[in-house]
Amino acid sequence: MSGQNDNLEDLMRRSLAGDQRAYADLLRETARLLRPFLSRRLRFSNEVDDLLQEILLSIHKARHTYDGQRPYKPWAYAIARFRLLDHLRTHYADQLRHAEDYDELEEILPDDVTESEISYESISAEVEKLPAKQATILRLMHHDGYTAKEVAAQMGMNESAVKVAAHRAYKILRERLER
């Protein structure tokens, strides 16, 4: 264990001196170390990969704050934890925003659902009549529970485009269901 630690510190010292091979080894070793740390805390493997990339970039950006005299692992884990918390904060803020989206959907429904002619099936049927992209977005967000960010990643769109498309879809649904 101590040998591996010495190795990491040595790799970092050589990286700071401009050794490209040592730097590649160090980043590879860091990714190997951090993957289980992130996997235990995140649900999806694509999330782990994205965050791991972000952490490696942060390590690259902050490498001048490591002087080679102190253990490498606490330094790298401090950055990993910082980025993880940042990610979770954004993720949960996203979830809260989606909670508002659900509220919007609930507004479409009449007060007394049991006496309504609008059923889950009728909403689903209306969703299927939407343009394909909007229908997929609503299905992913409200049926499969993905966040706008995750939907954006899956569909190759940016996050705000997903939100705009979802918003337009709600409007269309509202109009159709109120008829």
């Binding site: 700071l16 730097y23 990969d49 990339q53 490696l56 690259h60 490498r63 001048h64």
Partner: peptide, 24 residues
């Protein structure tokens, strides 16, 4: 995994000598 390998390759190419920050 491939993305990470690509990123590592890209970052390691940028590994120039770095002047460490002064001690706090």
């Amino acid at each position: 995994m491939n993305d990470i390998e690509q990123l590592i390759a890209g970052l390691s190419k940028e590994a120039q000598p770095v002047r460490p920050a002064p001690h706090p």
